[in-house]
Design a protein around this nucleic acid. Structure first.
Length: 574
RNA sequence: GGGCCGCUAGCUCAAUGGCAGAGCUGCGGACUUUUAAUCCGUAGGUUCAGGGUUCGAGUCCCUGGCGGCCCA
């Protein structure tokens, strides 16, 4: 196993967490935690909230310790605002728990929270992330946190005093910030991240009647537009009014409609679950943030310790086509898994330390990424990979539970992309080209190249701009054909005459290079001269013009095979 | 105004106080190869600046600069 000299960041955290857990709660399962708010699409930035503890927990599990990774679904949080694209009538639900808001129109799910949890759950399963999901709605409405709620109310003055250390006197006057130079995706991601972490502009529970760390959801309208006006520690009688006009008095010792405010809720759960490791976004790094305040509350009020909590930086996106960003503008893990295999996505999160930001490629960069991945695999095989690279690789391809599915014949992604581009995904043609790629070890079934083939195809169809796609002409370019000189006509004739006898990848390769040689009076297998190379290039450009209407394109033999002999004859004016 | 993080080769990043290193790009070569093909070779550095601690600092401390973000 990894010694300290070759440990990566995951291993180092695992060391620390194991030691801490041993000190805090010897003999009990080690608890790592993530929190996710299903208030909208759960995007690739939020995935870091899960992957960071996942990787650490997995390392701990690999070492044979008992460990649990909790994902807390903050589905009892209030519905804050109606996102763009949703009917404005949803505004009547603002203030309700996310589990009490109807799912977006057309959804098969019971409510807003379930609708956005579902794709994340599917993605985590595909990525091999093992976790214990906890619905905060279920926790609060079943009274699990009863004692913690009553305790927090009893201690409200001390909590208020802690919060007060960070309150600033003059609330308003928050000068509008100058126009940021973020592009749309970044801005949306930053906003979504802030939403998810519950950091910004959270009502901390201050009211005229005093401070109360508990906020009831109204029994009539379900919204949290409530104000606590009285509370009795002895009887636990709590009186509130709601903006809807309703008012009532309930026994908090029996009442289950409401929750602790975020800055108290989070530390309460650290204490309740005994969380040893939980990361947080960089937006928690300022004084007064819920992470900083929570650290004091968990210690001074709940008598527990704050988790070891690395701050993680944002995850960016490069080149996401506007169209397919799933309804929210920011791509989700499901979006990424459409164009890359799960180990690749895991690798991105494993190889960078949490405090490093990185980008996930939806553009051409993904080809480079895959090249790098394949090169790493070769280095692992021949033993020349660096220890940290080996660690990241092993965390990417599987978990303590076993390896993730892999592609049996991992052909270069760029090759697959190029092939599906020109065959437009046609299975028979794709297989024919794949079979001819390596005659020594011919591919006999598309299955051998899956799932990578499917990811490449998905990438080509959803992410490659139309102007970069190869589109074989439907009709011949009669104008260009008509303007050709004698030599050019002759070259096309030589090519067409040879088509039937050279209809294979190698045959066509010899043919397309041979035509200019024959024209120059050389033997088809003559060594190329500089002049000949110029002639070849000119000939190729002519063919590309006639076949795809541009000067360049996929390698000609592949292109000819994909287009088919009949179409080639038609387009070349036979 | 306060805070967090970052700054190392052209780019993306390694280096846990102990010889500054990879990938890509570039350059040279091989190849009958083409949407950034592949293989071989090679170059590339005031580690943001200044000071301090140390036998030894990219790494630790202080001051400053620049960038990103958060809070006010």
């Amino acid at each position: 196993m990894a010694t300290s000299a070759e440990a990566d960041w995951v291993s180092r955290f695992a060391d620390e967490v194991i030691a801490e857990a041993e000190r805090r709660a010897p003999g009990k399962p080690i608890v790592c935690a993530s929190g996710l708010s299903p208030s909208g699409p759960i995007h690739l930035g939020n995935l870091r909230e899960v992957m960071t503890p996942h990787l650490v927990a997995d390392e701990i599990r690999r070492r044979g310790h008992d460990v649990v990774h909790i994902i807390s679904w903050d589905d009892y949080d209030r519905f804050r605002k109606v996102p763009a694209g949703i009917d404005s009538s949803w505004s009547e639900h603002i203030g309700k728990p996310l589990t009490s808001v109807p799912a977006p129109p057309g959804s098969e799910y019971a409510n807003w929270a379930e609708h956005f949890k579902a794709p994340m759950i599917a993605a985590l399963a595909e990525m091999g992330v093992e976790y214990h999901g906890i619905s905060q709605t279920a926790r609060y409405t079943s009274g699990v946190y009863r004692e913690q709620v009553l305790f927090a109310m009893r201690e409200r003055e001390r909590i208020d005093a802690i919060l007060d250390r960070y309150r600033t006197k003059d609330k308003p006057a928050a000068a509008r910030k100058p126009q940021q130079k973020l592009d749309e995706a970044d801005a949306a991601a930053a906003e979504a991240a802030a939403e998810g972490s519950g950091a910004a502009s959270e009502d901390d529970g201050t009211a005229d009647a005093g401070y109360f760390p508990y906020k009831p959801y109204c029994s009539v309208c379900e919204r949290d537009l409530t104000t606590v006006i009285a509370y009795d520690d002895e009887t636990t009688e709590l009186s509130y009014t709601c903006a809807c006009g309703h008012s009532e008095t309930v026994l908090l010792s029996e009442h289950d409609q409401g929750k602790l405010v975020w800055k108290v809720d989070w530390p309460m759960r650290w204490a309740y679950e005994g969380v040893v490791f939980e990361p947080s976004g960089v937006d928690h790094s300022s004084p007064g943030s819920s992470f900083v305040v929570g650290g004091q509350i968990v210690k001074e009020i709940f008598g527990a310790e704050q988790p070891i909590g690395p701050m993680y930086a944002f995850v960016g996106i490069s080149g996401m086509a506007k169209m397919s960003s799933s309804k929210g503008g920011v791509p989700t893990p499901a979006d990424a898994l459409e164009i890359m295999e799960a180990p690749l996505l895991r690798w991105l999160y494993a190889r960078r330390k949490p405090n490093q930001s990185f980008k996930i490629a939806f553009d051409q960069e993904i080809q480079r990424l895959y090249d790098e991945w394949d090169a790493l695999e070769r280095k692992i095989d021949d033993g020349t990979a660096l220890p940290a690279d080996v660690a990241a690789y092993s965390r990417a391809i599987g978990t303590a539970a076993g390896p993730l599915p892999e592609t049996p014949r991992p052909l270069p992604y760029r090759t697959l992309a190029s092939i599906v581009d020109i065959t437009t995904g046609h299975a028979e043609q794709t297989l024919r080209i794949l079979r001819d790629l390596d005659p020594e070890r011919p591919i006999t079934s598309l299955e051998e190249t899956r799932p990578r083939l499917d990811r490449a195809e998905r990438w080509v169809t959803t992410q490659v701009p139309a102007e970069q796609r190869t589109r074989v002409r439907d009709e011949p370019d009669t104008e260009l054909l008509g303007s050709l000189g004698h030599g050019e006509r002759e070259s096309l004739r030589l090519l067409l005459d040879g088509l039937d006898d050279h209809w294979s990848l190698d045959g066509l390769t010899a043919l397309v290079y041979g035509v200019p040689k024959v024209q120059a009076g050389l033997a088809p297998d003559a060594k190329p001269t500089p002049e000949l190379k110029v002639a070849q290039r000119g000939f190729f450009a002519l063919l590309y013009r006639l076949l795809v209407g541009r000067d360049t394109g996929p390698r000609l033999p592949t292109l000819l095979l994909a287009a088919g002999a009949d179409r080639v004859r038609k387009l070349l004016g036979a």
